[in-house]
Design a protein around this nucleic acid. Structure first.
Lengths: 123, 123
DNA sequence: AAACATACCTAGCAATACAATGTATACTTC
DNA sequence: GAAGTATACATTGTATTGCTAGGTATGTTT
């Protein structure tokens, strides 16, 4: 999930397919615990190989909060700048679960479409 | 994968996650045979429950052709307007295969992220 | 006090999907 | 032969997204 630094067509495609999934990715990250922005970025990179930049995540967190899916609170930190912790609202939990279920059916559709492509790669 | 006719936030999300995958969906549709625009739309709806509109598919076909992934030719039809048939170029076949492989790893990442969400849906 | 580390935020751009609308061809019906 | 219908391709304008490149704010280290 690297940002599209270069710009070959295929790198651009990888950028484009990530779009839209970040909402779910972030909501899922908050499923079990409160986290702050940079922490979400670091965990996704460490555990899921998904790289998001700060300019990506903060606008999304702002949008999710505006939509009432998450809430936040400032917390003093022992390491410099204070942190803004986010957590799921009840509405956010319902939405994350609905998104996760939809994801399964969406993946199944794409899987069946690419099956012939993977079966015989034309060599 | 219905078009976003209404506009509740959750329907909007479904629209957003589709974005980017349509290139692969269309290339995969052309894996085994030449097809024309409306035919691709009809097959995707019938076989995969994916609904695309004409205003969506024609610009994408134009872009894929500009990128050299598909080629096309006009064919007279016995049913009114002539049809523009598309097929994969060698470059398009390679790209479709690469996209399909990437898709598998991407799906695996998202799957592992949403696993906790699906495991316990907070009832 | 300068440099560094941490953390959050925003403006401007590029790319996408899609509804709405328009064009072109041929067949059918009156 | 005019009107209506069906098929098929194409474009315009809008909303939404992700991200680079910058910026602000706080506290620690040298």
């Amino acid at each position: 999930m690297a940002p599209n630094v270069g710009s070959t067509p295929s790198e651009n495609w990888e950028t484009q397919v990530r779009k839209g999934w970040l909402d779910l990715v972030i909501l899922a990250s908050l499923w079990k615990e409160k986290l702050y922005g940079l922490d979400i970025i670091r965990r996704l990179e460490a555990h899921s190989d998904l790289l998001l930049s700060e300019g990506t995540i903060y606008p999304i967190l702002g949008r999710l909060k505006r939509d009432g899916l998450i809430d936040s609170e400032w917390v003093e930190s022992d390491a410099g700048h204070p942190r803004k912790y986010y957590w799921l609202t009840p509405s956010g939990r319902r939405r994350a679960a609905a998104m996760a279920r939809y994801t399964k059916t969406f993946f199944a559709r794409i899987d069946s479409l690419i099956e012939p492509v993977l079966a015989k790669e034309e060599r």
